Simulated assay, not measured.
Amino acid sequence: MSIKENIESDLKTAMKAKDELRLRVLRSLKAKILEKEISERKGGEAEISDEQTVDVLMKAAKQRKDSITQFREGDREDLAENEEQELVIIEEYLPKMMSEDEIREVVRKKIAETGASGPQDMGKVMGPLMGQLKGKADGSLVSSVVKSELSN
């Protein structure tokens, strides 16, 4: 079952259970996936791949994380908690993300492959890495690991 089908199935379950929070989040995700399908459409019907669906979900998760930070800075804990609850639901549909240690191992290999020697070579390492780790690791975490490894 694809991620999209899983979301649609869980949406029906949430409707029957009258789970308002899950229903709201899943409807939002379904709408974002539909937007992506429409933007990808070239003449005929276009089903997006699970990889593209993961991109949509990662973008939604990143938006929630940014909102949580902003709400906390604005002293709106109630809104931050709501965003956190939504983020938990979104993360259920994302593939398991790599740990910092796993990322560090991949980064060290990539630095050795590219011959990067310092912070000035960050772009040389980040480009290929993000292609390799797309959908498997948080981009900001990868960036901070690369910075720390190139600084050593």
Rank of each mutant, 00 (worst) to 15 (best):
S67G: 15
S67P: 08
I68L: 04
I68N: 13
T69N: 15
T69M: 12
T69S: 15
Q70V: 06
Q70N: 13
F71M: 11
F71H: 10
F71K: 12
R72V: 04
E73K: 14
E73I: 02
E73S: 07
G74E: 02
G74Y: 13
G74L: 03
D75P: 14
D75Q: 13
D75M: 04
R76N: 01
R76Q: 01
R76Y: 01
E77T: 01
E77L: 00
E77A: 03
E77I: 00
D78V: 00
D78A: 00
L79H: 01
A80P: 02
A80K: 05
E81S: 09
N82V: 08
E83Q: 10
E84M: 06
E84P: 09
E84Y: 06
Q85P: 15
Q85G: 14
E86H: 10
L87A: 04
V88I: 07
V88T: 14
I89N: 08
I89G: 02
I89A: 08
I90A: 08
I90D: 09
E91W: 01
E92A: 09
E92Q: 12
E92P: 15
Y93G: 07
Y93R: 09
Y93M: 00
Y93Q: 05
L94Y: 10
P95F: 11
P95E: 11
P95Y: 08
K96R: 07
M97L: 13
M97P: 06
M97K: 14
M98V: 04
S99Y: 03
E100I: 07
D101Y: 11
D101S: 06
D101R: 12
E102C: 02
E102Q: 00
I103Y: 00
I103M: 01
R104V: 00
E105C: 01
E105H: 11
E105N: 07
E105D: 04
V106P: 12
V106G: 13
V106A: 05
V106T: 02
V107D: 05
V107W: 03
R108F: 05
R108S: 04
R108H: 04
R108P: 13
K109Y: 13
K110C: 02
K110F: 00
I111G: 08
I111Q: 12
I111C: 06
A112C: 13
A112I: 10
E113K: 15
T114F: 11
G115R: 15
G115D: 08
A116L: 00
A116S: 06
A116G: 07
G118N: 11
P119H: 04
P119W: 07
P119L: 09
D121I: 01
D121G: 12
M122R: 14
M122S: 07
K124H: 08
K124Q: 09
V125H: 10
V125W: 00
M126R: 04
M126P: 10
G127T: 11
G127F: 13
P128V: 03
P128W: 06
L129V: 00
L129T: 01
L129S: 12
M130C: 07
M130H: 12
M130Q: 14
M130P: 15
G131L: 06
G131K: 15
G131A: 15
Q132H: 09
L133H: 08
L133Q: 02
L133E: 12
L133D: 09
L133G: 04
L133A: 09
K134S: 11
K134F: 10
